[in-house]
C-alpha cells in the first residue's frame, strides 16, 4: 500500500494538522509515514498545503508530485493542484467554499459542503475537516477510523481532548456520506 496525499486550503483551515492526523493514524498501524509542509513556489498565493505519505514500505521521497488523493478546502487550491492528481485518483472537495466544478474527468470526485454540515449538525465549523477525513478513510481504507480517532489524542493538545467525541462524530458522518 502506498497512499500519497496532498491537503490544501487557506492558512487557518487546519490543513497542517489534518495532515499530521493522517500521519499519526498511519503510525498507529505501524505504517511508514511522512509529513511535509508546503515548499517551493506552492508557498505563494495565500494557500497552505502539506503532503502526507502512508506506506507499507519505507517512504522513498516525502515530496509528492502526483498525489493519489487531493483534499481541497478552497478554490485556489483546486486550481493549483487539480492537474497533478494521478489518473483515477481521489479528489475530496469542500463545496461550501469551492463553487466551481473540477476540470478533470478521470478522477473520483466527492464534493461535500463540510463547512455547512459541521455548522448544521454539530454547531461547530471547526470539525468540518473531520468530515472529509472520514470520507477519505471510508473510500481508501488507507487507515482505519479507529486509528484516526486514536491519533486525535496526539494531534489535539491536552486541553482539547474533551473535543474528541465531537471529532469522532464528524469523522463518522464523513464515513456515512462517502458510503451513501
Amino acid at each position: 500500500m502506498l497512499q500519497e496525499i496532498i491537503l490544501a486550503g487557506f492558512g487557518g483551515q487546519g490543513v497542517m494538522s489534518m495532515g499530521q492526523l493522517l500521519a499519526y493514524a498511519g503510525m498507529e498501524e505501524n505504517k511508514q509515514v511522512s509529513w511535509i509542509p508546503s515548499y517551493g513556489p506552492e508557498m505563494r498565493g495565500g494557500t497552505a498545503n502539506c503532503s502526507v505519505t502512508l506506506s507499507d514500505t519505507p517512504v522513498s521521497s516525502p515530496l509528492i508530485d502526483e498525489p493519489d488523493t487531493l483534499f481541497v478546502l478552497n478554490r485556489p487550491s483546486l486550481e493549483k493542484f487539480e492537474g497533478n492528481v494521478k489518473p483515477g485518483g481521489l479528489l475530496l472537495l469542500n463545496s461550501s467554499l469551492v463553487k466551481v466544478e473540477p476540470q478533470r474527468t478521470d478522477l473520483r470526485v466527492l464534493k461535500l459542503p463540510v463547512d455547512n454540515l459541521a455548522q448544521e449538525k454539530f454547531g461547530n465549523s471547526r470539525v468540518a475537516n473531520m468530515i472529509l477525513v472520514g470520507a477519505f478513510v471510508a473510500i481508501t481504507g488507507a487507515v482505519s477510523l479507529d486509528s484516526v480517532v486514536g491519533a486525535l489524542k496526539k494531534v489535539l493538545p491536552e486541553h482539547r481532548h474533551k473535543l474528541i467525541p465531537l471529532n469522532r462524530q464528524a469523522l463518522e458522518l464523513g464515513v456515512e456520506l462517502a458510503q451513501s
Binding site: 509515514v33 511522512s34 509529513w35 511535509i36 515548499y39 516525502p62
Partner: peptide, 10 residues
C-alpha cells in the same frame, strides 16, 4: 536543508 528541517517522520 529546509525540507529535512520542516518535515515530520517517525
Amino acid at each position: 536543508d529546509g525540507t529535512l528541517g520542516q518535515m515530520m517522520e517517525p
